[in-house]
Amino acid sequence: MLQLNNISKSFGGLQVLQGVNLTVPQGGIFGLIGPNGAGKTTVFNLVTGLLRATSGNIAFNDQDIGKVAPHKITERGIARTFQNIRVFKEMTLLENVVVGMHDHMNYGLASLLLNLPGYRKIESAARERALELLSWVRLDHKAHLLADSLSYGEQRKLEFARALATKPKLLLLDEPVAGMNPSEKTELMREILNIKERGYSIFMIEHDMRFVMGLCDRIAVLNFGRIIAEGTPGQIKNNQEVIEAYLGKEEAE
């Protein structure tokens, strides 16, 4: 589904990524782990068009997206959440999710200004879909509350619903459980598995190893801008180079 071929990225004299090759398959959960500063978020920024690779190419469903604008990449089917929560706190949950649908809501300016039937029909369908997505993450009962009233974990789930509103084929999750307590992590793991079971493919960055090992089908390890290992959770957990570079003996055990 997603292929990074010999990707390198430099910022001035600093080389952040060096010859990265990754293949994210369809229909599973693929994890990218590594120490802070390894280049993980840079990978996400390249995939979503926020940065341009210094060399190499990125393909999504066999189409080159290396020079495609971020909003066009979203239209092609890649959605993303960020490590720092970015919900619209002054809007309701329902409004937050509807915002994610705007690229797919085809009505003209005149229809909007005159409140014509075509506009009302599209808006009604969008609200119904938003309620459905909120139900997927068990927030539909709070649809008309302001996002600012949610707990940290609930705001993260709202982000998932809004990302799904863009009709993605691939969902990128940047440290989804950062700052969460154990019960919130357990609940979010259930929501991510629910999303996977609905046919979505997921590419995830995360530091919580129990979370990663319990969710991912395959994991790649990035260290100093290079991929040092890739495999199943069991293979990664027992890889000596990964243990020395990142996991440590306690995590491996």
Rank of each mutant, 00 (worst) to 15 (best):
N5E: 15
N5R: 15
I7T: 11
S8W: 08
S8C: 09
S8R: 06
S10P: 09
G12Q: 05
Q15R: 12
V16E: 00
Q18W: 11
V20W: 00
N21E: 02
N21F: 00
L22F: 06
P25M: 00
P25D: 06
G27E: 06
G28N: 14
F30G: 07
F30H: 10
G31T: 07
I33V: 13
G34P: 00
P35L: 04
P35N: 01
P35S: 01
G37M: 07
G39K: 02
K40H: 02
K40V: 00
T41Y: 05
L46E: 01
L46S: 05
L46T: 07
L46C: 08
V47G: 08
L51P: 07
R52P: 08
A53I: 12
T54K: 04
T54Y: 04
S55D: 11
N57C: 12
N57R: 15
I58C: 09
A59D: 13
F60E: 05
F60V: 09
N61V: 04
N61I: 08
D62F: 02
D64H: 06
I65L: 03
I65N: 02
I65W: 08
K67S: 14
K67R: 15
V68P: 03
H71Q: 15
H71P: 10
H71A: 12
H71M: 12
I73L: 04
T74C: 14
T74G: 08
E75M: 14
R76E: 11
A79H: 02
R80C: 03
R80K: 09
T81A: 04
Q83S: 09
Q83M: 10
N84Q: 14
N84G: 11
N84R: 14
R86Y: 03
R86H: 10
V87M: 03
K89N: 13
E90G: 09
M91I: 05
L93P: 04
L93K: 01
E95D: 14
N96F: 04
N96L: 05
V97Y: 01
M101E: 14
D103Y: 13
Y107H: 13
Y107S: 12
G108H: 05
S111N: 13
L113V: 10
L113N: 00
N115E: 14
P117L: 05
G118N: 13
K121Q: 13
K121Y: 01
